[in-house]
Write a protein that binds this DNA or RNA. Structure first.
Lengths: 277, 277
DNA sequence: TTGACAATTGACCGATTGGTCATTATTATA
DNA sequence: TATAATAATGACCAATCGGTCAATTGTCAA
């Protein structure tokens, strides 16, 4: 098994239990049954491991949410699909979600905070685009508050059901939140958050990603993953990106092929943005 | 100045900036201009300092919220007063609020988590009593969800305005949240959280506090605070607790005298419960 | 079988941590 | 002023941290 993956998986378990600071590299290497030196062959430092974990999972969360928004045609179902998918992701990667809950704004490391803020802004942007699409002009003055309320719902209900041992009815939860969202969207009259207050648009991750950057990441991922449909699709997409030869339908199909592979979600997200799907 | 207070105030500043784990006792003692040994004369350990800080502030938050609920007669204004008071407290003790945000469920220390959970449950209980009072039967099936939504609002908007440097219009914020609360209370039909799910009532801090326990705390506080109206009132209340001699009006007045003294809020809270005001 | 090269190890490093305690400074009492 | 009691100090401790690197083991073409 890939050392890097092994370390990431095992360390995440420990982080979820104890938090970053409280987990020593010694503990991680013991748990992985490798030596301390071997750890530093895979990661330059403990911080680099943490940043890699954040990227790995936040990329999936962000891409998943974006995919749902892009690929749900029925406006009526949009928020339901969004809530369901979000909580489903949280549940699936509950260890990482627990770490997020624990650390939150925390962790003194500047890079860490900047990274999390950037992903948070992306998430906000996705929510805002949903709101504008479903409610349009109707919520012009209250849409930013709505963004925050939705974030509040997700945050507080996640906390609740991560502590719960019993399985949670995600369908019921999502439906109940859709009802609340609709209520707030349609009847709120007193806005509190103004556009200036959250200044969407000044964050680095919003920048357009260049073709070359995408190619770099693709090559990297092609190296990483084993022979499979996903790898083939990735190679074809890479060639198409260098010199377009395929029809839009084929490209969409290829994107569909790779979108559920954990290593390809980010590429899938970037390419959808690049081709303006 | 009292050493204990000095350490608590100064350490809180450092915790707010850096977090618990990242702040060493050396840093704290340097910042207080005292020696390391002196620190251990006031607190048995670093953990004890942290627990003292939590008690000091959570007692104030809890007691403040409870006071507002008990002393607001107009149901129409109840939630407004509650939101306003809560955010006002957060703003006033923003350093502690920041620490709470940072650490949250965090911090591996069992005692810490248990304590925070207990205060959280008290807060939930206060919110629930407000909901039942204002909306009554109407929200029988959705009241627990409402509790969580309100907690979500408070949590997410606190985050927002703690990061904001500019002063925040608490009046506007509170009014906007009251509107949202009313909307959710009056029109939500799909409940998600059931009573069993949050099992209110199984936490230790809910237990009835005995007269002796209150007396202990009162004696301790009488030692702590300097000569003042508050101290006199405290002594009178103590005597009355041992052997009731004063009329209810006088007791109420004495309680009013002490309720704004930082050291007396908890006593005020306990006595109000004891006398069933 | 050899030997060049890469992968892996874990003893070791300096720094820092929470906590201790013999010693010293300060204050109160007589 | 002399003495007892209390408050305060900071050098010191063992433990642990993230990180390094000389030494060892494994791999594979020649």
């Amino acid at each position: 098994m890939n050392k890097k993956q092994l370390i990431m998986e095992k360390s995440l378990e420990l982080f979820a239990k104890q938090g970053f600071e409280a987990t020593s590299i010694q503990q991680i290497t013991d748990y992985c049954s490798i030596s301390k030196g071997a750890f530093y062959l895979s990661f330059k430092s403990k911080d680099e491991l943490i940043l890699a974990l954040i990227d790995h999972f936040m990329i999936q969360f962000t891409a998943d949410a974006d995919y749902v928004v892009t690929n749900t045609e029925d406006d009526e179902k949009l928020f339901y699909e969004f809530y369901y998918s979000t909580f489903h992701s949280f549940q699936k990667h509950s260890d990482f979600t627990k770490v997020l809950m624990k650390e939150q704004t925390h962790s003194f490391n500047k890079d860490f905070i900047i990274k999390m803020r950037a992903y948070d802004k992306l998430f906000e942007k996705t929510i805002l685009s949903m709101i504008e699409r479903v409610y349009g002009e109707e919520v012009e003055h209250t849409k930013y508050d709505l963004v925050y309320c939705i974030k509040g719902f997700i945050s507080i209900y996640s906390q609740l059901f991560l502590l719960q041992k019993a399985p949670v009815d995600l369908n019921l939860l999502s439906r109940s939140l859709v009802e609340k969202t609709n209520l707030l969207a349609r009847h709120t009259t007193i806005p509190f958050i103004s556009q200036e207050m959250i200044q969407i648009g000044n964050e680095p991750l919003n920048e357009e990603v260049t073709k070359e950057q995408i190619l770099d990441i693709m090559e990297q991922k092609i190296e990483e993953i084993e022979e499979s449909i996903e790898k083939e699709s990735l190679i074809l997409l890479k060639q198409h990106l260098i010199e377009p030869t395929l029809s839009q339908a084929i490209v969409k199909g290829l994107l569909e092929n790779i979108r559920n592979h954990p290593h390809c979600k980010w590429i899938s997200y970037l390419l959808r943005g690049y081709y303006k799907f």
